[in-house]
Write a protein that binds this DNA or RNA. Sequence first.
DNA 1: GGGAAGGCCGCGC
DNA 2: CGCGCGGCCTTCC
Length: 132
Amino acid sequence: MRKAKGPSKKRLETTPAGAPESLKSADLILSTVQKIPRGKVSTYGAVADAAGLPRRARLVGTVLRQTSRRVPWHRVMNASGRISFPEGSDAYLQQRTRLEREGVLFIGGRVDLKRHGWPSQLGSLDEYMWKL
DNA sequence: GGGAAGGCCGCGC
DNA sequence: CGCGCGGCCTTCC
């Protein structure tokens, strides 16, 4: 008997009537993205972590893709500091333009996360350990 | 830097 | 209801 409709397999505590967990996650993600300051960028994975949803980088992308909410989606890029859209595509250009307009510097098609990354722990760990 | 492997999971077909 | 595809990531080679 497959576990009597128990509370979910992983996390998620039986969402009460009409509150799909996916929406709660989306909310956490969107509010997190909302916090990225102007002139700074974050990564899908970092946003997921900050939102309390570790390993859910993909979900961040999915949510940003289909949300209609006005959030600074352009401040989210992949772990390589690159825009996760085909170079030359509309989305790519728009994201890049918006970022540069905020003062984010692109070097060789990528952004220096140590410099514009948010939260700052994005790449400063090495330096933190060594330098300092 | 680059490619493969494994994770994670919502959504549409 | 199974399966493939994402605005991905990390680890290992």
